[in-house]
């Protein structure tokens, strides 16, 4: 019984992990290649979720909603890059943080105006609603399995693009040495827009898949964004591999901590004390983990430099 519970929570952790990975992959590349801090990456996650909900309601078809949500986020991402972010590439990190902070306020309010402040819930099509029996006595939602599958598939595609294609070679070179890529005569501006659009689409994908699991509401992007920062700090800036490993670690540690820390503590200290300390400690776990990694490896587990 406990094993089955553990197994299910582990899968939940993996599911959170791949969601974080989809966010982190784009953000870490943008950081590594453009040396650009984009706080508004979380807004793209939110935009993806909202567009999917709206498009699904509008077309009445979930697959169409997903497709439109993805395409829409890609467009929004590219538009933001061209309109607001380009002038910031030459600025320092402080300016980038402040300007993208302003963008977040804008997007959160815009979403609230269009769709209201209350959470939206989406219904999934019947074929994603069921459960499957993975182990004897353990049934698991099909949808969460699908999320894991899509996430791992995207990870594989990313791995292929980054390690096996010319674009990937440029991306890797850019993440470790920006000036060198410029010296190779590559159209840097185009490379930036492609990478940014790529990252935006991945963030949108993460958002539209997370929508049916968590609630869709203004500000949802920032909560996950900060966890994604933890992922990137742990994994190392500019490393897609680091993003994957970091995301899985953070996803699993966070999920298992929330599920099991309180009962485990109950064995060590008095149950009332565990009742109070358990949730507090569980919510702090990934940040403490980050501090630990930093103490040992200040540049993250996988450094691209």
């Amino acid at each position: 019984m406990t094993f089955i519970l553990f197994f299910e929570q582990l899968l939940n952790g993996v599911q959170l992990g791949v969601t974080l990975f989809l966010m982190a992959a784009g953000l870490t590349l943008v950081l590594g290649i453009m040396n650009f801090v984009n706080l508004a990456h979380g807004s793209l996650y939110m935009v993806g979720a909202y567009l999917m909900v709206a498009a699904t309601q509008w077309t009445g078809s979930y697959p169409l909603g997903v497709a439109l949500g993805l395409a829409g986020t890609l467009l929004v991402g590219m538009a933001v890059e061209v309109a607001a972010l380009r002038p910031l590439y030459a600025r320092d990190h402080l300016d980038q943080v402040l300007a993208t902070f302003g963008l977040i306020l804008f997007f959160n309010e815009l979403v609230a105006i269009i769709w209201g402040r209350a959470s939206l819930y989406t219904s999934l099509p019947a074929w994603l609603q069921g459960h499957v029996e993975l182990l004897p006595g353990s049934i698991y939602p099909v949808y969460r399995l699908t999320v894991i599958g899509v996430g791992l598939f995207v990870a594989f595609v990313l791995w292929y693009v980054v390690t096996r294609t010319r674009l990937g070679m440029l991306i890797r070179a850019g993440a470790s040495n920006r000036t060198m890529v410029a010296a190779l005569g590559v159209n840097i501006r185009l490379l930036y827009t492609v990478v940014f659009g790529f990252g935006a689409a991945l963030a949108g994908l993460a958002g539209l898949m997370a929508g049916p699991i968590y609630s869709v509401q203004p500000g949802m992007g920032e909560l996950i964004l900060i966890q994604v920062f933890v992922v990137i700090v742990i994994g190392g800036i500019g490393s897609v591999r680091g993003a994957l490993v970091g995301a899985l670690i953070v996803g699993i540690v966070d999920t298992l901590g929330r599920a099991f820390l309180k009962p485990l503590l109950g064995h060590v200290i008095s149950p009332p004390a565990a009742e109070a300390a358990g949730p507090a400690l569980a919510s702090m776990l990934i940040y403490l983990l980050m501090a630990l990694v930093l103490a040992v490896k200040p540049a993250g587990l996988f450094t691209s430099r």
């Binding site: 990190h93 920062f229 501090a291 930093l294």
Partner: peptide, 20 residues
């Protein structure tokens, strides 16, 4: 912890600890 790092790391880490 955070002053040992610099640049983007410093920004992300101070933000993360505050969120904690």
């Amino acid at each position: 912890v955070s002053i040992r790092t610099s640049g983007v790391y410093f920004i992300m880490i101070t933000l993360a600890f505050t969120q904690m």
